[in-house]
Amino acid sequence: MNIDHELDLRGRTCPLPVLALRRFFLARGDAVLVRVRVTDPDSARDIPTFSERHGYDVVDASMQSDEWTFIVRRR
């Protein structure tokens, strides 16, 4: 899996991670796959919902010691 970019949003609280993810996809029209790392549980809950609503797919999600990692793909 070729990750185009990694967004390290650990320590940022809702809704900043979702907004930053949106900003990234809007700014980088060429990016397809992005890895997002968050520590905020609310953001971890919101990222899949946001992706579904706005034309992205969460293709992988994992959690390890209070940190969530999502791989999000533009459709």
């Binding site: 809704p15 979702v18 907004l19 930053a20 949106r22 900003r23 809007l26 700014a27 919101d46 946001f50 609503r53 706005h54």
Partner: peptide, 12 residues
Amino acid sequence: LGDAWQAFDTRG
């Protein structure tokens, strides 16, 4: 609030 956040254009 989330509905507004998610629809917002954060470009730039």
